[in-house]
Simulated scan of single mutants.
Amino acid sequence: MSAPTKTRYTAKAAMESRWFKPLVVSLGIILVFGLAVLAARLLRNTQPVGDFIERYHGTTALPVDAPVGIPPWLGWQHFLNMFLMLFIIRSGWQIRNSSLPMNWRRKKPGRFLFKNPGKKINLAIWWHLSWDTLWVLNGVVFFALIFATGQWMRLVPLSWDVLPNALSVAIQYLSLDWPLENGWVNYNSLQILTYFLTVFIASPLAIVTGVRMSPAFQTRVPQANKLVPMSVTRRVHFIVMLWFAVFILVHVTLVFATGALRNLNHMYASQDNNDWIGFLIFSASLLVLVGGWFAASPVTIRYLASFSGNVTR
């Protein structure tokens, strides 16, 4: 009788382990991905889908005055956005798990949303809002430059043909037979739709919901909860965070899977070739990210927060 009891206990303990759910989810993702690849390869071998891909190869024409290439400032913007987004997601997760048992209170009152009438907030919230502020400022510069230089034309769908072309690209990607493309001149339609959703939909949603959840906004505009409940705002904000996380994962994977040296040269070296300069710059940027990650300890966060407020346990 003891053996079955031990087996049941072991199985129960395994299911209650903190690694059980992530393992099941990971295996489920792998299974779904494998089935999607199999389905895509089978579809590509059919006559209708083959004709569809031949007609919609994956890209749409840009205006004649659209810029060609990726300028150095866009490479810097890309790195800064990656750096800031890393700590925004990390600090947001710290808020969710309450991993910073300290509070922060402004030394001097600010104005409007930044006004803090003697109210303490968790240090994790201060840390998150600080990175949010830098990210928004970087975004303002980004929007100003893309509209001043015409780079916005490479990120915005300009015809309805982008939809069938995006579907064609998705089938080609899933079949693991990459579409022919040249991101230096024009992104494929699936990239355009993804970049558009990230830059012009997800990013504003992150800002609006983040401001709505900020303690200062709740103090200044208490009637907002009647229009948009906090539970809805938090759910949307979390979904946007998941979108960014999935986007980063897929984006990095495809950068390396579809020609790493050339893609890294486009974004980090502002040149269209296959040498190792972009890879070396990218490697240096990873060192900066790793260094920043380990430097952002609770002691460091408390020290930085002390410049603008009082930190207490």
Rank of each mutant, 00 (worst) to 15 (best):
A3L: 12
W243G: 02
A296E: 09
S189R: 06
P204W: 04
S2G: 12
S308V: 11
I121C: 11
F294G: 02
G28T: 14
L38A: 13
M230H: 11
M230Q: 14
H251G: 06
N122R: 15
N116Y: 13
K6F: 13
L43G: 00
L249W: 13
D161L: 12
F294Y: 12
I89L: 15
Y195W: 07
S231Q: 11
I171H: 02
L190G: 04
G259D: 03
P22M: 09
S214G: 06
T149M: 01
S306L: 01
S168R: 08
I281T: 06
T133G: 15
N182F: 05
V252W: 08
F196Q: 03
R18P: 06
M241Y: 10
Q223N: 03
A170K: 12
N116L: 10
S189V: 11
A296M: 10
V299L: 11
I207E: 00
I88W: 01
N188L: 00
V240S: 01
M102Y: 15
S91E: 15
K115I: 10
G58A: 15
G309W: 07
H57W: 09
V156I: 07
W152E: 02
E54Q: 08
S26R: 15
L134W: 04
K12C: 07
L163S: 06
V199F: 09
M1H: 11
L304M: 13
R55D: 14
A170E: 07
I301T: 03
D65P: 00
Y303H: 11
V156A: 01
A13E: 11
V156R: 01
A14S: 05
I192K: 00
R41C: 01
I239A: 15
R212N: 03
S159D: 08
L27D: 14
F52Q: 15
M241R: 00
A61M: 10
V64C: 01
L134N: 08
P204M: 01
H78N: 01
F114K: 09
L254D: 05
F143H: 00
L86R: 13
R105Y: 07
L100W: 12
R313M: 14
V232A: 10
L180K: 15
